[in-house]
Amino acid sequence: MTKEKPTGPTTTTPLHAVLTRRADAETCADPSSVMTLLGESDGTPGGFTSYRSSFAEGAAGAPAHFHTKASELFFVLSGSLRVLVGEEITTLGEGDFLAVPPRTPHAFAAAPGAEADVLFVFTPGLGRFDYLRLLGRVMRGEADPKEIAESADRFDNHYVDSPVWRAALEGSA
């Protein structure tokens, strides 16, 4: 019996550990939340982006959108987060985990009357920290909102209309 030898290159790219100390983590703030940028390793196999968002009571998060390449993972550290997945709205509480696969419309906000502290992970990452910085600049009036629309493909963030989500937000106002 003969064993076949692999043809072509057999080299692998080593993965590198990412460590961010609390004191060194960059923060981005907007009127509704504070985001702590934890780690990013885009462009590599197993790449990811991870950040933590602390939402003020009842604060809006992201409007309805989807990602074509990335899965978005949510872990509620404390508080309560209202989430749209497809056409269904659910509320996540402390310790709840949610994974949203690519091409699935979703949105999120702190639940009415509640704050929320949430860990987000995207895989693959795609340099998403630059997107979060852009969002902060737009919300503070330092950048034009059209920059967000123009960056949809770069950051794999595609906004969609969701009558279900709009109605839920209007109902809690």
Rank of each mutant, 00 (worst) to 15 (best):
A62N: 03
H67Y: 02
R21Q: 12
E147G: 00
E94K: 10
T49K: 09
A116C: 12
K69L: 15
S151E: 08
A29Q: 10
A59G: 08
Y51F: 14
P45G: 04
E170C: 01
F129S: 07
A114T: 09
V138A: 00
F155M: 04
R82F: 00
G141I: 10
G95W: 12
F48N: 07
S33N: 07
E170N: 08
H65V: 09
H16Y: 06
R21M: 14
E87Y: 03
H16C: 01
R133S: 06
R140P: 01
A29E: 15
T91V: 15
F129I: 06
N157K: 00
E170T: 11
G127F: 01
A110P: 03
R82V: 13
F155E: 13
R140F: 00
L126E: 14
H65S: 01
V118T: 11
L92M: 15
S172H: 03
P14R: 13
P101Q: 07
F97E: 08
F120P: 00
G136R: 02
T7F: 04
V121E: 03
E115Q: 15
R154I: 05
G39M: 13
D42K: 05
S54K: 04
G95C: 08
P102N: 02
R128T: 09
H158P: 02
D24Q: 14
E115W: 15
T91C: 10
R133C: 03
V118S: 02
D24K: 12
D24T: 08
E40S: 01
E142F: 10
G58K: 02
D96I: 05
G8K: 12
F55S: 00
E142N: 04
S172P: 03
S53A: 15
A173R: 15
G125V: 13
C28H: 11
K146S: 15
A59F: 05
P124N: 10
G43H: 08
P63S: 14
T13C: 06
R133M: 03
T10M: 11
T91H: 08
K146V: 12
R154P: 00
V85W: 09
D156K: 03
V34F: 02
L38D: 09
L98R: 12
L73A: 11
T2I: 09
G171D: 07
L134F: 02
T91R: 12
D153V: 06
L38I: 15
P63L: 11
G93R: 08
A99R: 07
I148V: 15
E150Y: 05
G8D: 13
L119R: 07
F75K: 09
L92S: 01
L134A: 05
F122P: 00
T2Q: 13
A70P: 01
A62G: 13
Y131M: 11
V83R: 01
S50Q: 13
A173Y: 06
D161Q: 10
L126M: 15
G39R: 06
L126Y: 06
M35S: 11
S78I: 06
A111D: 10
K5E: 11
A99V: 11
E57R: 07
F74A: 05
G141W: 07
F129Y: 10
P101W: 07
P112Y: 15
G93Y: 07
L98E: 14
R137W: 02
A17Y: 02
L169P: 00
T44L: 12
